[in-house]
Nucleic acid binder design. Structure first.
Lengths: 364, 364
DNA sequence: AACAGCCAATAAATCGGTTTAGTATCCTAC
DNA sequence: GTAGGATACTAAACCGATTTATTGGCTGTT
């Protein structure tokens, strides 16, 4: 497969394929045929249809005739030809780890909202954490003339010749605008909530090594804990392992935490998915949620609210982050190449208190 | 906004933007510059790079020189120019109701898997059930020269001039290949499961009117019930209402069903999302799952397995359906336009028995 | 010496638009 | 009577590739 991706040659077509819309008579409506039909030049028709400044000198009467004909013959300009000539494709590329994950899907939903409103379309590619794809896809997208890239939870390695906006991705890469959560505040929100409820023995589940938020989240949690005068014991720190995004990962880590014998009354998970798995594991060990152990998730994915018990979680405004990414990217595309651009845009988390947290049973 | 979508004119560029990758010297590497660098014609370079039959007469020595230079200058052919000339865009369009829904996301994941392997890219658009968008998007996509369309859970209204494959969409539209679930079997699986457990008073939640599976699913359930000698009382049939895809919809319908006073010992929901809402409502009414009421969902989305209790559900092979759709579409694109094509491809459901169903307490 | 045939390429058309520079006609003012 | 300017367009270049038809040089044969 990578032979094909790296290969710049074109696959030999197996057979000619009809691409354009055709009139009932079987002919495609091109600018040329439209111009012939009108007895005018392509230039005149193009100017009028695009309401270009150069159409000023063409009388209203003629303009109307042209537009009428275009409508009647159902003329639709070929976007490929346009893009080629104008060096503007009105297309951007979105790189995600995996489409079917709630996280990426929500961000994409925000991206789409803004992009389509502005007349842009986008390509999506998912790399599934494979390095060769993370490197190759941005190049392939640029070959397809995207005007910019959005990387979701992905550290782009190859150099991008177009503006790049990262959602929860990089740290301080030149040329990249980062949309990031205020991690310090996110950690503080959760930890304050738990300590106020009287918890002191708190367990934390770190993300997988490949996830771009893993390091900063753990650092923030540790700092927040310290500021509140509690320490997270080494034995109470777990780490998600494995590629999949199923709750199973959280389930396994939690099993291990329980098996270690170190007691805890609260658990803060890397994300909602793993929190769900953790709850499963705790239940199997005979602990009730939230009476015996309080559990806090992260992200606020849709099903968090409909867990039993409903999950207390730190909400990331994922849809808004997507919209913000798209907005920022289009702004950067419109600006001259040397213009300054924001290095970082910080968004705020929100603590969503539901039923998976409660006062600690035996506050110390 | 729709003004813009319908308008075939081009937005006036605010400023020229750099589109192509550039060498360190600032010049983009085009076929022309590569040919000049080599002292050869563009034709020769193109033939060699594409390993075209016409390159037979060019000696190995020269071919190697050309490829070496291409590699060193990091030449990447402009896909736009290629597509325009060849009338092949290697791009398809995917139309979904809403990206962030688990259903569409899973199907897309399957689509992507197959497409990218075959060197295709795809545009995604989501219409959010708005008729004008359902009509307009396929046209916009065709204007962007897509070679085919995949519609997910969407009945395309406008005529498509390119091959179209629908996942759970149409019924018998000329030119369309349908990928559909064996609904009769799906309904039978669930209803047999429930009746074997002794349930006779079964409630069913229908989908929203706009969902393409709503009618057939209800019809199949009714038929399956009849075949098993049970009838679903009118008072026990609810219907999801509202655009959103949150469990709340299922919650509200179920509240109504409970309020109606008609007793039931089992509930079969239109999808997993609504089943989750239904469970919430039943619990609030003091019914235990599955002791008092058994609940069956539909789809088997990821979080179904990690509900409490884990959801018994009818699994749709969504990822496989996506792959199948992509595969079928590419096959149709490669075939001559008049070639016969499959009207329907049926996939099989699977009953996933988990913990939300149990024997009826008072079998009649 | 003439012709065929092969080799190693190239010139030029093409895809379907956009855009610049220009032309032909008419009107008006001096 | 004609310079100047507006009006109403058009011819042709251009975007960056692919592809067909053609060219010139060389070798070998009769």
């Amino acid at each position: 497969m990578w032979e094909t991706l790296h290969d710049i040659s074109m696959p030999r077509p197996k057979s000619g394929t009809i691409l354009r819309a055709r009139t009932p008579s079987g002919q495609s409506v091109s600018l040329k045929s439209l111009a012939e039909h009108l007895g005018l030049s392509q230039a005149a028709v193009s100017l009028v249809i695009n309401r270009a400044p150069g159409a000023k000198s063409i009388p209203q009467r003629t303009q109307e005739l042209i537009r009428k004909a275009a409508r009647e013959l159902n003329y639709r300009p070929n976007h490929l030809a346009r893009s080629l000539r104008q060096q503007r494709s009105y297309t951007i590329g979105v790189v995600v780890p995996e489409i079917s994950e709630g996280y990426a899907a929500l961000v994409m939903s925000g991206i789409e909202d803004h992009l389509l409103q502005e007349g842009y379309f986008y390509f999506v590619v998912s790399h599934r954490h494979r390095d060769e794809l993370i490197e190759e896809y941005p190049l392939l997208l640029q070959q397809r003339a995207v005007e910019g890239l959005i990387a979701v939870d992905t550290a782009i390695t190859g150099a991008a010749e177009v503006p790049l906006v990262a959602v929860s991705g990089h740290r301080e890469v030149p040329g990249v605008t980062n949309i990031v959560l205020d991690h310090a505040r996110a950690a503080a929100l959760a930890m304050e909530h738990l300590t106020k409820l009287g918890h002191r023995e708190i367990s934390f589940i770190k993300g997988q090594a490949f996830s771009s938020d893993t390091a900063i989240r753990w650092e923030s949690v540790r700092a927040a804990a310290e500021a509140l005068g509690v320490t997270i014991k080494d034995g109470l720190v777990g780490q998600l392992e494995g590629e999949s995004s199923s709750p199973e990962l959280g389930y396994h880590v939690t099993k291990k935490l329980i098996a270690s014998g170190e007691p805890f009354t609260a658990l803060f998970a890397f994300n909602d998915i793993s929190a769900i798995g953790a709850i499963q594991a705790l239940r199997e060990a005979g602990r009730q949620i939230p009476q015996d152990v309080s559990v806090v998730g992260f992200d606020d994915i849709q099903s968090a609210a409909f867990q039993n018990p409903a999950l207390t979680t730190v909400r990331q405004p994922l849809r808004e982050m997507g919209m913000l990414a798209a907005e920022t990217l289009l702004r950067r595309i419109a600006a001259p190449p040397e213009a300054p651009y924001p290095k970082e845009i910080v968004v705020q988390p929100e603590l969503i208190c539901r039923a998976s947290t409660a006062a600690a049973r035996n506050p110390t």
